[in-house]
Design a protein around this nucleic acid. Sequence first.
DNA 1: TGAGGAGTACCCCGAAAGGGGTATATCGGT
DNA 2: ACCGATATACCCCTTTCGGGGTACTCCTCA
Lengths: 220, 220
Amino acid sequence: MSEQIESQSQASVLLIDDHPLLRKGVKQLIELDDDLQVIAEASNARDGVRLAEQHEPDLILLDLNMPEINGIETLKMLRDAGVSSRVVVFTVSDNEEDVVAALKAGADGYLLKDMEPEELLANLNQAALGNMVISERLTTLLAKALQSGRSNKGPDISALTPREKQIIKLIAGGLPNKLIARKLSITEGTVKVHVKHLLKKLNLRSRVEVAVWAVQEGLG
Amino acid sequence: MSEQIESQSQASVLLIDDHPLLRKGVKQLIELDDDLQVIAEASNARDGVRLAEQHEPDLILLDLNMPEINGIETLKMLRDAGVSSRVVVFTVSDNEEDVVAALKAGADGYLLKDMEPEELLANLNQAALGNMVISERLTTLLAKALQSGRSNKGPDISALTPREKQIIKLIAGGLPNKLIARKLSITEGTVKVHVKHLLKKLNLRSRVEVAVWAVQEGLG
DNA sequence: TGAGGAGTACCCCGAAAGGGGTATATCGGT
DNA sequence: ACCGATATACCCCTTTCGGGGTACTCCTCA
């Protein structure tokens, strides 16, 4: 296609982070680099997605820990909205779950906020050029995650309690909460508690997604 | 110590049978079970359908051999009336035609009246929990019917319109109505119209059942 | 020309689902 | 003896689903 006709142009960057001070710092840092340019900022997911659709930036720097809608969700929203920008997660969390979830969700990079400024700039330039960037601190963590098997597609069943796995199978049988409650001799309210917990753990949005995933996974 | 204060977890049962004595016996038997409760009785199809619409019981126990309107017709009337209760046929007939017709018409179970009382209770409980129950005597018969081709397992996709098939695939993708609407550029209300039509045609009870069925069928 | 199916859109309504809490009891391990 | 995980039950609330209806347009087929 007709990408990149002006090959010497700056790469546009969208910042999505709920900390104004950090945004300001990062923006100033980026402006020091002739190859990068901040074209918009958002302090929450909704604004971020809207601005991303509007500007289709080359690069999106995305914070994970935001109120209301977290970074992973934001990333999925961006992908669902058809935003094809490179997305680099930029966060303080070196939690394995977060890293794995972000990469599974299609992040093009995962950088920690305690990086040296020069190193951050170098990494952002690499990301803008289409290379995947990962903070060095995370390499061993990623290796471990890979070892332990579940490095591939889809949600992770390992964090689930026995009760939650049991309820997933019943959901995959098409049962509503009321029937699940009767089958397990507990109240419907308790079933709903389990359902909301497992939805959170699996990072899924509804019982329908749970059912589809479970059936495809062969749990049924 | 918040133990089971709720306890409205009994499954409601509607009896439709033209034999008063048998109804009485079955009712007494069911009342022995804490998990089941007879909430209405009918001695003919018309009353049965009316009471089913009125009470929307969890379970309907339906006799096949009734005057004027037989059980199969009653079952179809119930489904046409939008009654989503589990329906278990309860009869003396081990005739293959009847069994196959009942199951094709969407029966959730087929039990013979010569069962042991304890076995009947166990089966009714299973049915109330959403499991299909079939008298063991009928298994060989069913196997034979299956061999001879006219198995007709599960819902039938042939009656669906192109739009409905399209929406089924999106449901099987885990999408809620709102997103389906956006993807098809129609209103959410219209999506809901299609969903309720296809639920009726497939004789399924919720979008979760649609999703599970579609995934297992390889659609999507 | 008229009937009927398909698709769209809207109305109303109740039930189900889901997300946020708080609270209790049990069980293992530090 | 405390702490965290698990499981249970309840409260609040909003959103989503599903079923009933009417109505209009566009086709197709008899």
